[in-house]
């Protein structure tokens, strides 16, 4: 564990707490893509299967349980409790365009040809693009509530912070994971546009609005 990974994980944790806070305080999941949330639940469930047979640490265990549980809880909130506040007509990204290629990539790039390893690879690739339905929705509506942008910023910061973590591990542990690193760089790059608007507008106290 190093400071970058710890801050990345805390940022990830914070993003989920901000999302829950947004839903509970506005009693609405307006502006949140159900598809992105469903993809994240898929990511966590397929990646953390090792919970059942591989012990890393208490920290690792608790975080994995939290990510699986919270992502399922968000799906429950969106699908049942606050269902009327979710508008599927603007959440139109075709997720099959993400799931298919990620499955193919996992078949091509993995560390071992076993089901858990294939699912692990799949989850890494899927995570890197899981935000696209959400960003697509943002693009369509052209604006977002401030709390939603804080959620996205914390989520983007999480994978961005993993990049210095991998550089650090390269030097201190001689560790490199080409699959995670490549996908992580792609994942972070997808946020660049969003980050630009977040830093130049939201953090200056303005509303998140995309130019028409």
């Amino acid at each position: 564990m190093n400071i970058f990974r710890l801050l990345g994980d805390l940022s990830h944790l914070a993003s989920i707490l901000i999302l829950l806070q947004k839903i509970q305080s506005t009693r609405s999941c307006r502006g949140i893509s159900f598809k992105t949330q469903a993809l994240y639940a898929t990511v966590f469930i397929t990646r953390y299967l090792d919970l059942f047979y591989d012990w890393v640490s208490l920290y690792n265990f608790v975080m994995k349980i939290f990510f699986i549980a919270s992502s399922c809880y968000v799906l429950y909130l969106m699908k049942y409790k606050y269902r009327p506040t979710h508008d599927p007509s603007i959440d139109t990204f075709r997720v099959e365009y993400l799931l298919g290629p990620c499955a193919v990539l996992a078949l091509l790039f993995h560390y071992r040809f076993t089901l858990p390893e294939l699912l692990w690879s799949f989850s890494i690739f899927l995570e890197s693009v899981a935000i696209l339905p959400q960003l697509f929705m943002l693009q369509r509506t052209g604006e977002a509530e401030t709390i939603t942008t804080h959620y996205l910023a914390a989520l983007g910061a999480y994978r961005a912070l993993y990049i210095p973590n991998w550089i650090y591990r390269w030097f201190t542990e001689d560790m490199v994971d080409p699959i995670a690193v490549t996908a992580g760089i792609v994942q972070t790059a997808l946020y660049l546009d969003f980050f630009y608007v977040y830093f130049t507008k939201v953090l200056q106290g303005q509303k998140f609005e995309l130019p028409a």
């Binding site: 990974r5 994980d9 990830h12 090792d50 591989d54 890393v56 640490s57 690792n60 975080m63 994995k64 990510f67 560390y111 071992r112 692990w120 993993y162 973590n165 991998w166 560790m175 490199v176 994971d177 699959i179 995670a180």
Partner: peptide, 10 residues
């Protein structure tokens, strides 16, 4: 065989 590199990450 390749070590399970980033499998200790989240």
């Amino acid at each position: 065989e390749k070590p399970r590199s980033a499998h200790d990450e989240l």
